[in-house]
């Protein structure tokens, strides 16, 4: 059975007349990597945010393992389907708090996945060339590449089944980009029921990643749709 199903999702900004995307329907199966593409302004980020309910869709529904997502199960859903922001942002001042926060959240779900321990986080940071990081430092003091990698570790700490990746390597130099790519692919390969949707602007990266291509432009109704910047 499909992990995640989108059925006729449509969205337009509150003050707009034209839909940015209309009747988006797709399925994500276990083990699958879907690369989402489309010109900037086609609403790729918005679509991922709408899937996890950070933005309200105008119409349509999302199903998680066949169940409709409601106010009661949305937190658990977000804990299993984690949206990774395009720009890595501090969710707490210090690095240590950024890494402990997801563990605290995961502990709130009684029968949820066991979150990464501090040691496991440390090993993951080492693989991303952040082994020597002083965790008492402020998250904001890191370079954007370092922030993106810490933010990625922060997200996989809750061991999500699905990752919704919003251009996670856009702000990285090629070396860091490769190590993040490898980490994501390793994470997905480690368990056969994991899956991801990955927004990528780079043709080379799309070729490296492989996976199924999903072009959002087929759901962009009008030529004016390309203007909206969230």
């Amino acid at each position: 059975m499909a992990l995640l199903q989108a059925k006729n999702l449509s969205w337009k900004p509150a003050d707009a007349e034209e839909f940015i995307w209309k009747d988006v329907s797709f399925e994500l199966s276990p083990g699958e990597l879907v690369v989402l593409e489309g010109p900037s302004g086609s609403g790729k980020s918005t679509l991922l945010k709408a899937i996890v309910g950070l933005i309200e869709v105008s119409s349509g529904k999302r199903l998680w393992r066949g169940d409709k997502i409601t106010a009661d199960n949305i937190r658990r859903f977000r804990n299993e389907v984690v949206y990774v922001h395009q720009t890595p942002v501090a969710i707490a001042p210090r690095i240590a708090d950024n890494l402990s926060f997801p563990r605290e959240i995961a502990a709130e779900f009684v029968d949820g996945a066991q979150p990464m321990s501090e040691d496991e986080q440390e090993r993951m940071l080492e693989r991303l060339q952040l082994g020597a990081l002083d965790r008492s430092r402020r998250f904001d003091e890191l370079s954007v590449g370092e922030r993106q990698r810490v933010a990625f570790v922060r997200c996989i700490t809750v061991r999500p089944q699905v990752l919704l990746l919003d251009e996670p390597t856009a702000s990285l130099d090629p070396d860091s980009a490769h190590s993040v790519e490898k980490c994501v692919l390793d994470y997905l390969d480690a368990s056969s029921d994991r899956a991801a949707i990955w927004i990528s602007h780079s043709k080379e990266q799309r070729e490296r990643l492989g996976g199924r291509l999903l072009d959002l432009t087929r759901w962009n109704p009008g030529p004016s749709a390309g203007e909206y910047r969230p």
């Binding site: 804990n79 990774v84 720009t87 969710i91 709130e108």
Partner: peptide, 16 residues
């Protein structure tokens, strides 16, 4: 807003 959304995206309650 981005920080609030990043916290929510991990499954935090809105209050948290």
């Amino acid at each position: 807003r981005s920080a609030v959304e990043a916290r929510l995206a991990l499954g935090a309650s809105l209050w948290r």
